[in-house]
Nucleic acid binder design. Structure first.
Lengths: 129, 129
DNA sequence: AATACTGGTCCCAATTAGAGACTTAATAGC
DNA sequence: GCTATTAAGTCTCTAATTGGGACCAGTATT
């Protein structure tokens, strides 16, 4: 009993999407990769400035933060606002599109959290062999 | 108005999770990265053998397929069964944990699909500057 | 006067991913 | 009989991506 969307996957293939330029794949890559996930979770808590995000995510590099923010901004998932203060400040916040994504992301986190006991047990079984 | 789980994020930080060994982050990395996502979508359609997956995902390498499958197997998200046929065959399928994840993944795909017009428009605006 | 803050960019080294050869044993085609 | 192919990987070498840190201009603090 295949899931509802088995057909959709098939449809995509039938439409001859080159895997390399499937638009949905591109968006998922921007949105579900390591750093973007964490950035969106942070921005889901509240809008934040560049260096604030850097501090909130202690192991991201400026380079990757800039790059991930640009990707998400380009896709319209977050908003970048520059304020002309003495040292100019830049604030990032979720757009409506981004707000719509957040619940799905939180659902993933919940799933991972609820599943942790299972996952830990599975790892022990796997490593024991 | 922060989302429900703003507190959870804060709790994690308060618990002093070293970002590098946050268990939820590890699972998300295994599950939401580029190739695992596609593998899980395929296995959500039906159980598949190694080379069958290779053919279904034309642009993945054996190396990354093996690696991603091992990660997912280790986390108990999918099952690996070896059948002692003439050339031994190996079948991969979602575990119950994996089945529980699939709906969330499909929700992400739907979100990306529904949002595509917005996203495309946002990109044009961004690139026009 | 020196330091730190802002939001980045740039370069180089380290890590990671990809491409393809190779494996073992069996079957298919010619 | 000989070659090619298939199975599920591993291994190596190279290409691409990432991380770390220096550096930038301009203002405020010590």
């Amino acid at each position: 009993m295949p899931p509802v969307s088995a057909q959709k996957l098939q449809d995509w293939k039938d439409q001859g999407f080159e895997p390399g330029n499937c638009p949905v794949r591109q968006v998922l890559d921007h949105v579900s990769a390591k750093w973007p996930v964490l950035i969106l979770l942070e921005l889901g808590r509240k809008p934040m400035r560049f260096n604030e995000l850097l501090r909130a995510l202690p192991d991201i590099s400026k380079r990757m933060l800039t790059q991930s923010l640009r990707n998400l901004e380009r896709d319209g998932i977050l908003r970048r606002e520059v304020f002309d203060t003495k040292p100019p400040s830049v604030t990032y916040s979720l757009s409506e599109l981004g707000e719509g994504f957040l619940p799905h992301l939180l659902a993933l986190v919940d799933w991972a959290e609820n599943g942790m006991p299972n996952i830990v047990a599975a790892r022990q079984r796997f490593d024991a062999v």
